[in-house]
């Protein structure tokens, strides 16, 4: 196989891995937004925090799998705490239209808070999480070799995606969640405890961000700026994919992952301008996003 094809396929796998991570973060982001109307700016910060928590667990125990299990749970706990203690509190203030501003500002405050806390605890230097021995090295497949860890990320994200779609589309709980995304008020009227469902979705969303954060640790180095990059990318995914649309989020994540991978190769520096330009265009002329069904 010639060198260019190898290079292209390697880049494609890189892009796929990043796209999968992006989807894990953005799916929680879009679910929370679609359901509660809260644009959780702090979502990507949870992703970054998870990487740091995983780094700490690794430093204590040296076991990657333990980190992958515990860190997302810790992050989900924080997320649930944030929903129940903070977001629910300001909903009671009867702020009317200004509620959106206050919710956004609260999440901005939490974002800054997490970032600064991380800088204070772990410092600004990049930290390195080592992948477990089983996932190091290269795996030969179809006459080529792929880095094992990227394949692991793709596999992990795919299995979570499948699990998520089973839960959302095949179970009663999923029906309730989707109903609440469609029309929260009507769902309450049917006698369903929607606030509890909100908490569940918030926890699920932050858990997904946590899984992505731990998985991203060995791939990207762990540093506080991780949140910013992820925030902007997941903004694009949610805006283009449509608010609350999982399918849209998946397609745009994959597209964005590939674009980032190939953009570095072919047109460095311009991909941001093109992407945000496209996002601005879509937001203005089709505020539902490319795959969204409702506002």
């Amino acid at each position: 196989m010639n060198a260019i094809a190898v290079m292209l396929i390697t880049q494609a796998v890189h892009g796929l891995a990043y796209g999968m991570l992006l989807f894990l973060v953005a799916s929680g982001f879009t679910l929370i937004f679609g359901m509660m109307g809260i644009l959780n700016i702090a979502h990507a910060s949870f992703f970054m925090l998870a990487a740091y928590v995983a780094f700490q667990i690794m430093a204590w125990s040296g076991n990657f799998w333990l980190a992958l299990l515990l860190a997302p749970l810790a992050i989900a706990f924080l997320g649930i705490l944030m929903e129940r203690v903070m977001l629910r509190r300001i909903r009671r203030f009867k702020l009317g239209k200004a509620l959106v501003l206050f919710e956004l500002m609260l999440t901005v405050g939490i974002m800054v808070c997490i970032e600064e806390a991380v800088k204070n605890i772990w410092g600004t230097d990049p930290q390195i999480i080592n992948a477990p021995d089983a996932l190091r090295g290269l795996i030969p497949c179809f006459g080529m070799t792929y880095p094992a860890y990227r394949l692991f990320i793709i596999g992990l994200a795919c299995s979570i995606l499948i699990l998520l779609s089973i839960v959302l589309f095949k179970t009663r709980l999923g029906n309730i969640v989707r109903a609440a995304v469609q029309d929260a008020e009507m769902t309450v009227a049917l006698g369903i405890n929607v606030p509890l469902v909100f908490t569940f979705v918030f926890g699920l969303g932050t858990w997904l961000a946590g899984v992505a954060g731990v998985a991203a640790g060995p791939l990207l180095t762990v540093f506080p700026g991780l949140a910013n990059q992820m925030l902007l990318d997941s903004f694009i995914v949610v805006a283009l994919g449509g608010f609350g649309s999982l399918m849209g989020a998946f397609i745009i994540s994959m597209f964005l992952g590939e674009l980032t991978a190939f953009g570095v190769q072919f047109f460095p520096g311009y991909s941001t301008i093109i992407l945000f330009g496209f996002m601005a265009f879509v937001l203005t002329f089709r505020p539902l996003g490319l795959f969204g069904e409702r506002e």
Partner: peptide, 28 residues
């Protein structure tokens, strides 16, 4: 012409997108 069409979350995201474009342009 683009910004006046939207409000709420979309306005916040749109302004953020434009400031990112400006950041990238100034860097470029």
């Amino acid at each position: 012409p683009l910004l006046v069409r939207v409000s709420g979350h979309a306005f916040a995201m749109l302004t953020m997108a434009f400031s990112q474009i400006m950041y990238a342009t100034v860097m470029k």
